[in-house]
Design a protein around this nucleic acid. Structure first.
Lengths: 137, 137
DNA sequence: AATTAATTCTACCTTTAAGTAGTATTTATA
DNA sequence: TATAAATACTACTTAAAGGTAGAATTAATT
């Protein structure tokens, strides 16, 4: 019952970038060291974030990463979507394919509320909201 | 963000057994067919449930499985514990080791409420509670 | 033009979860 | 006692996630 490593790392990376968005470009070496994320895995994740349009990369010497969009416009749910970690409405806690009002699983009713809270937490938290909150390591 | 297949299957199996606890023993072949769970995987899970003391097995011809404890005394959280799927208090949604009041992650505050609801859902749902509720396939 | 420091690409390796196969063991019944 | 039908054990295979390696590409600086 937890997010994939990729999603967790991506959120931490972007939250750290949001903390430091006024500084210069942030590069992979610095991010990996600061956040204790394996360098090669981090670059793989960053490339995904670039392809998804959340971040732009500047290649070559003195290159690095910066935001493509405003941090107030990037929601945590956007990040989860990139790594197929979104919580869908139809997701059943017991993994039954079509768990709905007609054919619902044994925990269907109890699952609705926490599911909605999770969706709300991810959909309503922007990077601006969480910037500066807590430590990132 | 979901339970392991083993946990999902185990809950569905035990919920079905709770639905039918007054009948004869239930055997692996029947359970696998009824619940559309791969037979060999189901027997592996059942052996875990037997070792954990939730279920007893009767070997040999006409054998099968039945509950060891009362269904009112088996909580969904007990099942999750067997498959290392419990939601711990200290579990951080961003995977940071020691996310607490002092050093908390960017989503720490938002995560508390859904986490508690999930824990509550699992800790307060007994097999008796969910027996008869919904379909099990 | 060469060097250096950065991202990107392709391919691979490792670990874990998920699932399968085959055999051994157990026990009721004919 | 032989047979049939059940669980249990050991070992293996497959698929997906997590992570790594090395070369290619890019661009600023000397």
């Amino acid at each position: 019952m937890q997010l994939s490593n990729s999603s967790q790392y991506a959120i931490r990376i972007l939250a750290y970038m949001a903390d430091n968005k006024d500084s210069k470009l942030l590069n992979a070496t610095e991010l990996a060291k600061t956040l204790y994320i394996p360098y090669k895995f981090l670059t793989k994740i960053m490339t995904e974030l670039v392809k998804s349009g959340l971040v732009v990369s500047i290649r070559g010497r003195d290159g690095g990463y910066k935001f493509e969009k405003k941090t107030s416009e990037i929601m945590v749910s956007d990040i989860l979507a990139i790594f197929n970690d979104s919580i869908k409405n139809e997701q059943c806690v017991l993994g039954i394919g079509f768990c709905n009002g007609l054919c619902k699983c044994a925990l269907h009713d109890q699952w609705i509320e926490p599911k909605h809270l999770l969706q709300k937490m991810f959909q309503e938290s922007s990077l601006e909201d969480i910037a500066g909150k807590g430590c990132k390591i």
